[in-house]
Amino acid sequence: MVGKGIIKGMVETARNFLGSYVSKQRLTTIQYPEERAPQIEAARNFPFLVFDGTDAEQGLRCVACQICEKECPPKCIFIEKSKDKKPDATGKMQFYPATFNIDISVCMSCQICVEVCPFDSIKMDVVYDLSNNDRFAGLLLHKQQLAKSNEYYNTIHPTEAAAVDAHFAEERAKAAARVKAAAEAKLAAEAKAATDAKAKSETTLADTQAQPVGGGTR
């Protein structure tokens, strides 16, 4: 019968139309901007810089190593290294970026800067409504706009941030242990120097005696 196919198709459309009143499967539309889709954890948009603590300037993890600047495929990152140093996330004295700009009109959200960063300092943000009136300066993000707290990072990417935090805790513990060991070694060295000075003549004698023994084991 001519028209059977069309009728079959119309039945399907009717099923979808009526179904959209009852089934979430058939009505997937969301009324943006009043409603928003739930944030997916892995989502990425543009990069931001993570800082620890409360002071964005002081706690910035970035050490201005400029690896991301070199590896960025569309070359949208611009970094200027500082002249002086400040302690980084693990307490080591490091340079920091005097300028850190990202041109998000050029950035293509590929995440390669995040992958190459050895200091876990640049991460991907999830903010997407970034429209601006000024297409040049408005889309060039400076260090102050890019710096966001570790707490914020923890809220947008909890699993990833927890792993990074654990890694940093380990590093800090190691650094603390190193400082402690260094202090102890210094004390021990001082004590040893005192005793060494006393028994200097005896040790030189012992050394000369020890040598033939080593040779004799052959």
Binding site: V2, G3, G5, K8, G9, E12
Partner: peptide, 11 residues
């Protein structure tokens, strides 16, 4: 559903 919708369609 998609096959029903159009595959037998005469047009």
């Amino acid at each position: 559903e998609y096959e029903n919708l159009l595959v037998g369609n005469e047009i």
